[in-house]
């Protein structure tokens, strides 16, 4: 089976994110970069699918030079080879277009993505990629299996979960709960250094760098007015005061 896992390098969840003084973006100084957590579930599922059916896992990523570390992480987990499309910045549509251009040549049976990246939190790339590849998108799933040439996936929705069947090839976006991603082993890390990574320039793939969705400005989050701390030593009295405030001031209960 020919399997693709798309990964993105993002700031660690604990990273302190500061906006540049001119609001043009974030200050990347001091940030620790990691694989997007949702993409880890995608890589894990890709590896499990390969282990069950044979085949090859290609990890594809878009980003600046530092992205290579994240590709190597996926290779250390067990992916066979990588494609690195180099670009400094791209919106969701252009990202998907660049990934589609790189993935078309691989002709995959299944493409895995994380359901969203935790940096821009857009959650669009998997679906746009599916559209550009002419494949159905199966998004935000917590269960995945292949049987009789079809994909069966579990998708939680508000108050229910769906069992969805899809033809292959398809694009699947992974949600937390799908699996427990493995750690890269030491031998895995050693082997990853020798695995092939094809580096392509986005411009050479004919990808526009002009975004369709432009970030006009970034700002720090709006300040929240300071709240009220209910003082006192008696839990019951504080509880009574809280209930009174929720009822009479906030009017939410």
């Amino acid at each position: 089976m020919n399997i693709v896992a798309c990964v993105k390098q993002v700031p660690d969840t604990e990273a302190l994110i500061k906006v540049k003084p001119d609001g043009s973006g974030i200050d990347e100084g001091g940030i620790k970069w990691v694989m997007n957590p949702y993409d880890e579930y995608g890589v894990e599922e890709a590896l499990k699918l390969k282990e069950a059916n044979g085949g090859e896992v290609t990890v594809v990523s878009l980003g600046p030079a530092r992205t290579m570390e994240t590709i190597r992480t996926a290779l250390a987990m067990g992916a066979d080879k990588g494609v690195h499309v180099t670009i400094d910045e791209a919106d969701a549509y252009n990202t998907a277009a660049a990934l589609a251009a790189a993935i078309k040549e691989i002709n995959p049976d299944v493409v895995f993505c994380g359901q969203r990246a935790i940096d821009d939190d857009s959650g669009q790339v998997g679906s746009v990629l599916a559209e550009l590849l002419g494949m159905p998108p199966i998004t935000i799933i917590t269960g995945f299996e292949v049987a009789d040439g079809k994909v069966k996936a579990i998708k939680p929705i508000e108050g229910a979960q769906l069992v969805i069947e899809s033809a292959m090839p398809c694009v699947v976006t992974a949600q937390k709960g799908l699996n427990e991603p493995r750690y890269a082993s030491l031998p895995g890390i050693m082997k990853a250094k020798k695995k092939p990574v094809d580096v392509k320039d986005a411009a050479a793939l004919g990808i526009s760098i002009e975004p369709k969705a432009k970030i006009a400005k970034m700002t720090p989050p709006p300040e929240r007015a300071p709240g009220k701390i209910i003082e006192g030593d008696d839990p019951a009295a504080k509880a009574a005061e809280l209930v009174k405030l929720l009822r009479e001031e906030a009017k939410v209960i």
């Binding site: 700031p11 302190l16 906006v19 821009d120 939190d121 369709k212 970034m218 700002t219």
Partner: peptide
């Protein structure tokens, strides 16, 4: 003009779609 949290709400972005 759309305003949205990014980076887990550590930053807000003002987005224009061209």
């Amino acid at each position: 003009l759309a305003i949205r949290p990014m980076y887990a709400g550590k930053v807000f972005g003002e987005i224009v779609v061209d």
